[in-house]
Computed example of a mutant assay.
Amino acid sequence: MRGLFWVLALFALAVAVALGARLNDGYVLLVFPPWRAEISLNLFLLALAALFVTLYVLLRGLALTFGLPQRVRQYRAGRQREQASLVFQDAVRLLFEGRFGQALKKATEAHAAGTAPGLSALIAARAAQRMREGQKQQGWMARAKIDDPRTEAATLMLEAEMMNEARRFDEALAALEKLQDKQGRHIAALRLELRARQGLGDWDGVLKLARQLAKRDALPGEVIGEIRTQAHLGNIARRTSDQGQLTSYLRTVPEEERGRRVVLAGVRALVAQGAEAEAQKLIEAVLDAADNGEWQPELVAIYGRLSGGAQTARIAKCEAWLRRHPDDARLLKALGRMCLRQRLWGKAQSYLEASLAVEPTPEAHLELARLCDQLERPEEANKHYRASALLDMH
């Protein structure tokens, strides 16, 4: 549409010029003594226009001719930049493809061409690290820190990641500390710090970071739960030699972080230290609050082996749990053990036989054998000893 408009405009202009020239009777007198020339005004204007066009073309041609070397240089520089950009892109692609030798070569070429020198050095460092060429890796990391200040944060992140992979966790934390001073902390940096603190066994730091990541919804809930569990297990293992520290720590564990494994490890550590009263309190607190999905038969088995304290009160507590879990073989076995310890022979036999009816186990047969020995019933005792041995063999 615009083309048609311009064509019509040119035709209109041509018509206007033709009409104007036809009606124009003016002339131009040129005097060059001793010569005189008289020409029409229309011819003069036409010649003037032709002269202007000729001069313009001549000057334009001269400018293009003398500017040709500069344009050639610019063209070559542009081609070099384009080729260097393609080399850099190839380095990135090859790194992600896992072709680290070629990625290192391309990154070296891109760095030499001056294309994103900081990023090129980082790519080369990562490729060298994947190829286990430590000296090249360190050299490229040093260049990355110098070549481009804009890549400082990226350099520190990559350094922390590579130090984690090399299990040099102290150096990873040092790099992350520098990053925090300059750029603050973000989720990716928190994840790297979490990995480093796990490697160092800094379980208190792990718990702190896990809670921060949970607030930011940075990791799936299952992963956060497993990280917390591992941290608590590590702290419990570290405190097994000090009963006071262990007891204090278990009391400070938030209720939502008291998973099955954490409670079980804590109870076992307390029992190993002889702190059966604390173990009893912890077991009762957990099992009293447990519903069917959170019931822990392992704790019941430990509860039944506790020797000190008021056995009668423990029997009553287990009988209360039995009303909620009547088919729990371990609970029935624990009751049988405690009744046997209190010389309640009839109740002990009843509970142990009920446990065997739910799930035959070597321990229940062995407890019944001991009961029969106490009651001087050797034939029945031998039968249960044999049954226990057969189950152990299977």
Rank of each mutant, 00 (worst) to 15 (best):
L4Q: 04
L4R: 04
F5R: 14
W6C: 03
L8P: 02
A9R: 14
L10V: 13
A12Q: 07
V17L: 15
L23R: 12
Y27I: 03
L29H: 15
A37L: 14
I39D: 10
S40Q: 08
S40W: 09
V57F: 13
G61W: 15
L62G: 05
L64M: 11
T65G: 10
G67V: 03
G67E: 02
Q70F: 05
R71F: 13
R76E: 05
A77T: 07
A77S: 10
V87H: 01
D90Y: 06
L94T: 10
F96V: 12
Q102G: 00
K106V: 07
K106E: 09
A107V: 12
E109T: 06
E109S: 11
A110W: 09
A116R: 11
A121C: 01
A125R: 04
A125L: 00
A127H: 05
Q129T: 06
R130H: 13
W140E: 01
R143D: 06
R143C: 07
L156F: 12
M157W: 07
M157G: 03
A160W: 07
M163Q: 15
D170A: 12
L179Q: 04
L179R: 11
L192Y: 04
E193T: 00
L194N: 10
L194W: 10
L200Q: 12
V206I: 09
K208Q: 13
A210W: 09
P220Q: 10
R228W: 02
T229Y: 06
R238P: 03
S241M: 05
T247C: 01
T247D: 00
V253W: 06
P254D: 04
R258T: 08
G259R: 08
R260G: 07
R261E: 11
A265P: 08
A265M: 03
G266D: 03
V267L: 13
V271E: 07
V271T: 12
E276M: 12
K281E: 07
E294T: 14
Q296V: 05
Q296R: 15
V300M: 05
S307A: 14
A310N: 15
Q311K: 13
A313G: 13
A316F: 00
C318I: 09
A320T: 02
W321Q: 00
W321F: 05
H325N: 04
H325W: 11
K333T: 15
M338D: 05
A348N: 05
Q349R: 15
Y351Q: 10
A357V: 00
P362T: 06
L366F: 12
R370M: 15
R370E: 15
E376R: 14
R377F: 11
E379D: 01
A381E: 06
Y385A: 06
Y385I: 11
R386H: 13
